[in-house]
Nucleic acid binder design. Structure first.
Lengths: 357, 357
DNA sequence: CTTTAGCACTCAACCTTTCTGAGTGCCAAT
DNA sequence: ATTGGCACTCAGAAAGGTTGAGTGCTAAAG
């Protein structure tokens, strides 16, 4: 059943107003809008209809209407108008985007902080592996007597390191030999291609450093098998700025006890292959603690078989259009930064320069 | 002016009770304690005295007493009884202490999470440098055309890496040459010892890879100069579990807007050289937003010129004894783990096995 | 058939008032 | 010095009253 244009207009107006005021919207408020020229009574009739259809809800009889989850869903899918970032916003996004670190993990965590700051909501980032991971380079560094640092570079420019302590001592030369062997025999292999046979062969060629081999291999396999990088979740406290948590701190705590890193690391899987953005509106979240919580997530490219996801968590009543616009800007420019030559270069300005507030 | 034993006993009782109930403590409640055998009237007189001395406060005339900041201070300095971890607690601490990662930063962040979990309060960890840092090893790894990963190992077993993208392309052999030069000339030097002359010399010997040199040096200097590692702050939401924030989510948010990572990274400096534990009680925190917030911090050893700090943040009304005991257990065992041979080995059991709840 | 003005009705939010009881301070007796 | 007793205080809960934004419905007008 299709909505009339007028119904759509009213639904959109209700979502827009409610999102910014957090107060139920009454018929008068809508009648007062500039491009509405029918009376509040008419609007009341339409609102009754929309409520019938399950798109609006009434907190109590004598209150205005608020969008139901289905209402939000319809708004997102059909009614939402592209939000154009203002010049000011673009400028501060650009400023923010000058990432300081170039360590991959730090970069991801920094991105999360930025997004959280720009949206004033909690945000997370995860890197997920698209294709099978392989090791690119091994390095063994002497860190002291019996203490060795293993540096492992994986596809996707991810660098992992581990401190290995050994009861036996190994010489510099032996380490060099072992890293040569590792680099010769293990690079560009996926986890499955690393067989026991291969392991035996390496152990034999490793000489005095052979006690290291199982430790190295275990760590390597662990890294190769892990399909997503660390989850960086920040800005949880910003949720408290939202009126829905004004007094009910416990609710916010509950949300974040549910939304732990494990849960978040599964979110990218929900992101459909087509389209870079996805919305989980209120009860579309599986966990019941999150029934009043929405997630907007967006994919961005990191290149070499890796894919990043940025997400923002907030009350169901959130400015989907604005957040989508901001996330989109991040995603676009991050993709560029992660891939193009000099990641220090600030992103090109002038994307969405037309004002609108 | 010295307190009488009875006054001390009363003050201690008030802190103990208030800490666990978060309600003002009345004279009757104290009179009802098993080892108190004087009447509530007597206690009222003593309480009036303690209030006079500024050690207790009265939220309003007809309420019980709560400790003032000065009261907490006295309690911490003189009255607090060592809390002995119960067998259960020791067991779960031991379980928690089986750290999974061996990457230094991850370990630190994991420790923070554990502490936060065990204390049910927000916690942070920072690693600070004690002695001048030096570079131990350089490594340049080809990550793709024009894309190089610099791995830098510093004193203290800290490994940093950075992705460097270059417009010109460099061969594997040239990289090898450059890392040899770097290792030969820059290792074991402090930031000050890296002079312009030295830099020139390296650039000349670097050959085709010379455009890399300034990038490498900049990164190295940056790492050497940074005096503390990342701040890992977690569990902010746990603050909301405390009754003082039951309805006043804004207050919790304020606390955490003030207590940002920069602020925390300065906290270790407050820790006096003598004694491993330090308390910042309420208004002893400089920022006025933190006037009702206390911090317990403890030092632990990481070896090789590095020192770790773990801290717990909570309302001034917190169980200082219990938290100190737990932090102490962590500190002791972490020190051992970071230093001794195999960091995988679980810490020795049987520290504080005597029950007491 | 659609729109609108008007009116009775509802109900959360706010304010005010009253009530209650935990807790104090002080005094006189032990 | 300690204690029982008593008048007093005052936050917080409970109960009642008022307000006003907002609705649904009806009947008249377009």
């Amino acid at each position: 059943m299709e909505l009339t244009d007028r119904q759509k207009q009213i639904l959109r107006a209700i979502v827009d107003i409610y999102v910014s005021t957090a107060e139920p919207v009454g018929s008068k408020a809508i009648a007062a809008l500039p491009d509405v020229d029918y009376s509040s009574a008419t609007i009341r009739n339409e609102m009754a209809e929309l409520t019938q259809l399950g798109l609006l809800e009434q907190p109590h009889t004598s209150a205005g209407r608020i969008p139901s989850p289905a209402g939000y869903r319809l708004y997102i899918d059909e009614l939402m108008q592209d939000y154009r970032l203002s010049l000011d916003e673009t400028r501060s996004l650009n400023e923010a985007l000058e990432l300081k670190s170039q360590e991959f993990d730090k970069m991801m965590s920094q991105v999360g902080k930025l997004v959280s700051q720009m949206t004033n909501l909690p945000a997370y980032t995860v890197a997920t592996r698209q294709s099978e991971a392989v090791a690119r380079h091994f390095d063994l560094i002497m860190a002291g007597p019996g203490s060795i640092i293993l540096v492992l570079m994986l596809s996707g420019d991810v660098v992992k390191n581990k401190l290995v302590k050994l009861p036996v001592s190994v010489t510099e030369a032996e380490l060099k030999l072992l890293s040569a062997v590792l680099n010769a025999s293990l690079t560009d292999l996926t986890a499955e291609e690393i067989t026991c046979d291969l392991l035996d062969k390496i152990t034999r060629s490793a000489g005095a450093a052979s006690p290291l081999v199982p430790l190295v291999i275990d760590f390597t396999l662990e890294c190769l098998r892990r399909q997503h990088g660390d989850v960086h979740l920040t800005g949880q406290m910003r949720l408290l700025g939202q009126p829905e948590y004004k007094d009910a701190a416990g609710k916010a705590q509950e949300v974040f006890e549910t939304l732990d890193e494990e849960m978040i690391s599964n979110l990218p899987a929900v992101l459909p292959k087509d389209g870079p953005v996805h919305f989980l509106v209120g009860p579309e979240n599986v966990a019941k603690e999150l029934k009043d919580t929405s997630v907007v997530m967006m994919r961005f490219d990191i290149g070499e078989g890796m894919q990043g996801t940025i997400g923002v968590v907030g009350p169901t009543r959130m400015d989907y259009a604005k957040i989508t616009a901001k996330l989109g800007y991040f995603a676009e420019n991050l993709g560029r930064m992660f891939q193009k030559t000099n990641p220090n270069m600030p992103p090109a300005l002038g994307e969405g320069t037309k004002d609108k507030e």
